[in-house]
Computed example of a mutant assay.
Amino acid sequence: MTDQPPPYDTPYGQPPGTPPPSGYGQPPGYGQPPPGYGPPPGGAQPPGGGQPPPYDPRYGYGPPGVPYGPGQPVAGEDTTWAMMAYLGTLLLGFLAPLIIYFVKKRESAFSRFHAAQALNYQLTILIHLVVLCAAFIPLAIVFDNPVWLVPLILLYVVDGLGQWVFLILGAVKAGKGAYYRFPAFFCLPMIK
């Protein structure tokens, strides 16, 4: 037996003279970058040139930056579906974009965006109409004066003109493969 305590660099429970493991007191790999981070050995370029993996449309709304930044090129069929969401609204009301939204929502982020835009437009117009009817029709009945219905006529004219302008503008932009947002007063973003 010796009267000397074991040296400080020897781990507890190890015989004296055993070299300490690297990173003594830390979990294995502490202070090292995780695998896949950092330069590859030998200075070689990582596969794909350091670019992120390609986007797979089955898993979400779209690649980063959509609808505001550059995204993937839009195929001809997607632009046709997106245009039909707007033009179908002029012919069939909310049914055309609703059908296109449910059919294409997992297949094409571009078609889904434009179908949702057309649906949001229809829902916003419905909200405008319901709110103004609930406010002004009772006033017209109580005061027995049809002057209170003038705001409804004005809303009908504004939304009627807006429908032709915005839906045709949206169809043109969709045909060119571009994302276009309607003004928030005419199109509240409710459906994504």
Rank of each mutant, 00 (worst) to 15 (best):
G13D: 02
Q14V: 13
Q14D: 11
Q14G: 04
P16K: 14
P16S: 13
G17N: 12
P19M: 09
P20E: 00
P21C: 05
P21G: 07
S22H: 13
G23I: 09
Q26R: 15
P28C: 02
P28W: 04
P28A: 13
P28M: 10
G29L: 03
G29A: 08
Y30D: 11
Y30S: 14
G31T: 08
P33F: 11
P35K: 10
P35T: 08
P35W: 08
G36A: 01
P40Q: 14
P40N: 10
P41E: 12
P41D: 13
G42Q: 02
A44T: 13
P47S: 09
P47E: 11
G48F: 06
G49T: 09
G50M: 00
Q51W: 02
P54V: 06
Y55L: 04
P57Y: 00
R58K: 13
R58T: 11
Y59D: 11
G65W: 04
G65N: 03
G65F: 12
P67F: 00
Y68R: 13
P73Y: 00
P73W: 07
P73F: 07
V74E: 01
A75D: 15
A75M: 07
D78M: 07
D78Y: 08
T79R: 15
W81P: 06
M83A: 14
M84T: 11
L87W: 05
L87D: 00
T89M: 03
T89G: 14
L92W: 02
F94V: 15
L95W: 14
L95G: 01
A96W: 04
A96H: 04
P97I: 04
L98T: 15
Y101F: 15
Y101I: 01
F102Y: 14
F102N: 14
F102E: 13
E107Y: 08
S111H: 04
R112K: 14
R112A: 05
F113C: 03
F113I: 00
H114D: 01
H114L: 05
A116D: 06
Q117V: 04
L119H: 00
L119S: 02
L119E: 01
N120A: 01
Q122P: 03
L123I: 00
T124D: 07
L126M: 07
L126R: 03
I127Y: 05
I127G: 02
L132Y: 15
C133I: 09
C133D: 08
C133H: 10
F136A: 02
L139W: 11
V142M: 12
N145V: 02
P146G: 10
V147I: 15
V147H: 08
W148V: 06
L149C: 06
L149V: 02
P151M: 07
L152S: 05
I153G: 15
L154A: 15
L155S: 09
L155H: 07
L155M: 12
